[in-house]
Simulated scan of single mutants.
Amino acid sequence: MTRRPSRPARVLAPALAATVLLTCAACSDDDKDSSTSAIGASPLAADSPTASAAARLTEAGARQALITETDLEDDWTQVDDAATWRDSLLVGKVDVADFLTAKADAADCQQLLDGLYSDTLLGEPSGASALTGFKEENSRLLYQVGTYRQAGLDTSFAWLKSLPATCDQFTAIDSAGDRRTVQVTEASLPEEGDARQGLRVTVQGTSGGDPATLTLDVAAVRVGTDAITVTAGGLDGDEDDSVEDAVRAGTKRLDDVVS
């Protein structure tokens, strides 16, 4: 593939990037409690086991289905601590006042923020799973693969598809009372897998007293009762090309493993 030119103009001050990209250990107990309770209450965690186990991944197969640096353009470097990544700009309570006539939509938007923060957009896997991560300057790419219950996947993909309409723009408020504007739009993905959904999520707020915008490109692709999810971005801007690379390479790897 033709490599994209480097983007030196996108490099931000290390102090700003370090402030926004926090690990789970740096988050407050209140933040973790709110994230956990919201996800636990989600219908994604309550579906019944209806899918056949015949085509499900083993733990070794899930690891084999992960992408590597060679599957991505640009200068992505694989890391060992991806499971601890957390973005502080995603922590906040949705302002229900934004939803005057559709209060239920506020719960969907809260579920989106919590799912992005805890890396559980499709709910918890019902079987084998694995994840890996990559860094490039101030951007990060998290790649996950896992086995889920069929009913849960159907619910998850329907929910993801609805978000650009129900959560197109809303406000989240952090524990200090600072307000953040969140926008959700649909994003196109390669025609891979049995079902797919792409999103772009931007969060505009402040970090360390300075304006900051977090941009995340998100993809979910279903292959039978298995699925991959990709979340990439940061303060540097969009990473849609890298997400498409990950979707193409990852779907092929997953197909090869399960077949």
Rank of each mutant, 00 (worst) to 15 (best):
M1P: 13
T2S: 12
R3L: 15
P5K: 07
S6I: 12
R7F: 01
A9K: 04
A13R: 12
A15T: 14
A17F: 02
A18H: 12
A18V: 05
V20W: 07
L21F: 14
L21A: 14
K32A: 11
S35I: 14
T36N: 08
T36E: 13
S37H: 10
S37N: 10
A41T: 04
S42I: 10
L44Q: 06
S48D: 14
T50F: 05
A53K: 13
T58G: 07
E59R: 09
A60N: 13
I67L: 01
T70A: 15
D74M: 06
T77L: 11
Q78C: 02
Q78F: 00
D80S: 15
A82C: 07
A82S: 15
T84E: 15
L89K: 06
L89F: 05
L89E: 11
L90Q: 13
K93T: 15
V94F: 04
V94K: 04
A97S: 15
L100E: 15
L100N: 09
T101S: 13
K103W: 04
K103H: 08
K103S: 13
A104H: 12
D105F: 10
A106L: 06
A107H: 09
Q110F: 04
Q111M: 10
Q111R: 14
L113E: 06
G115K: 06
L116G: 06
Y117S: 15
S118P: 00
S118R: 13
L121F: 06
L122C: 05
P125Y: 02
S126F: 05
G127C: 03
S129C: 05
F134T: 10
S139V: 02
S139K: 09
Y143L: 08
V145E: 13
V145K: 11
Q150N: 11
A151G: 10
G152K: 03
L153S: 08
L153A: 08
T155N: 12
T155W: 00
T155K: 13
F157R: 05
W159R: 14
L160T: 07
L163D: 02
P164D: 08
P164N: 06
T166E: 14
F170Q: 01
I173W: 03
I173Y: 08
S175I: 11
S175T: 12
G177S: 04
Q183S: 15
Q183D: 13
Q183C: 02
A187F: 03
S188Q: 15
L189G: 04
P190G: 03
E191S: 15
E192Y: 00
G193D: 04
A195Q: 14
A195P: 01
A195L: 07
Q197D: 09
G198P: 05
G198Y: 05
L199G: 06
V203T: 11
S207H: 07
S207W: 09
S207D: 06
G208M: 02
P211I: 12
A212K: 03
L214I: 12
L216I: 03
L216N: 01
V221Y: 01
V223F: 00
V223T: 14
G224P: 01
A227W: 03
A227D: 07
I228Y: 03
G234E: 08
L235T: 07
G237M: 04
G237T: 07
D238Q: 11
D240P: 00
S242M: 04
V243W: 08
E244V: 10
E244T: 14
E244H: 14
D245T: 06
A246K: 04
G250I: 09
K252I: 02
R253I: 02
V257H: 08
S259K: 12
